[in-house]
Simulated scan of single mutants.
Amino acid sequence: MRPLTLRLQAFGPYAAPLTLDFADLGPHGLFLIAGPTGAGKTSLLDALCFALFGEASGESGRDAHLRCQHAPEGMPTEVSLDFVQAGQRWRVTRRAAWLRPKQRGGGTTAESEAVTLWPVTAAGLGPPEVKRAEVADRLHGILGLNVAEFRQVVLLPQGRFRELLVAEAKSRQAILRTLFRTAFYERVQSALKEAAKDAKDRARDCETERRGLLARADAEDAASALARRPDFVSALTMAEALQIRAEAAETLARQAEETGRHAALRLAEARQAADALRSLEGQGPGIARDRATLESARRADRLGGVLATTETERRLSQIAQQDVAPRQPARRLRD
């Protein structure tokens, strides 16, 4: 991120509007902000940090005393920053929360913090973003830093240089860790170590697998295995042909098994039929006797029917004779 223009008013020791054009410094990447104590050097860094994140550059974070006590009552505390990031120019303007004098009557009206972010093009300002949460997310995406990381990487806190210069090596290391908050880089280092360990484990597994393949190929190294590749291909082709033949033979065997199963079933049925026939043939004489008895019974039945008919006719004749006998004397008497 490269600052271009910083505008501020009623901020820190700067009561009147002030504009700093960093472009006047030329293409130099290093410059010095110099001045006596209390001149407002740190306030410029506070203004830059406040424009981007709404907080001062110090460790205390959001500073409630950023407003200049000598500013006119009707002038809001406001900072505007133009900067370039990844070739794109942006402008962010942030107004601090303040007590605005009422337009009518006495007293004040509380106004909350307001922020606006614009993309800047050759045609002018682009569409603005005004919601604080959306502006914060957009700036985080543009800068790739939050306020703590910005203080650590971009702004160097005061009061730690003398302590750093006179400290011993171990103490200096601790101070640098505190100053630059190297916990993030320690986490990166730990993650890289873990990734390296995983890579070594995968490499070891791959080496074990490679040795197993070489052992199966009966080769000392990859070159030997590659030299024997034609033999392996020929063996594989032969094995595939044998597999096809075996599968065909298996199919034929299954078909023969199924045919044999059906034949065995038919043979069992034939045996059962032969056994039944032999049983019937053994019963032949008895069947003949039963047939003769049946024929005799049929003739007796027919004879019994004739006899019954004759008996019936005889009884009818007797009844008729008994009925005629009384009528003959009566006829004689009439005669």
Rank of each mutant, 00 (worst) to 15 (best):
W98C: 10
V154I: 14
A136L: 01
A300R: 11
A39W: 01
E111W: 04
G74V: 10
T109S: 05
D205Y: 04
L20R: 09
G35F: 08
V306Q: 09
R172K: 09
P72Y: 03
T19G: 03
R62W: 00
A222F: 08
A273N: 09
D290Q: 13
G74M: 04
E258M: 07
V188Q: 10
P128T: 08
G35M: 09
C49K: 01
A241Y: 06
R162G: 12
A288E: 12
Q9G: 11
G260K: 06
L267Y: 09
A110Q: 14
P3N: 03
V120C: 08
A217R: 13
T5D: 03
S224P: 02
A148P: 01
G304H: 11
V84D: 06
L294W: 06
R334N: 12
T77Y: 03
H262A: 14
R67H: 02
R261F: 05
L226M: 14
S190F: 02
D275A: 15
R291C: 11
L18K: 10
Q88E: 14
H65E: 13
D290P: 04
R327D: 12
D63Y: 03
D201N: 10
R91Y: 00
A308H: 12
V135S: 01
A223T: 07
Q318P: 00
A308P: 04
A64Y: 00
R331V: 15
G29I: 03
F180M: 12
A270W: 03
A51F: 04
I142Q: 01
A330G: 07
V115T: 10
L125R: 09
K200V: 13
R278N: 13
R229V: 08
R162N: 10
H262W: 04
R291F: 11
F50K: 08
L32H: 01
R204V: 11
G159N: 08
A196C: 09
L45Y: 02
R100Y: 01
F22K: 05
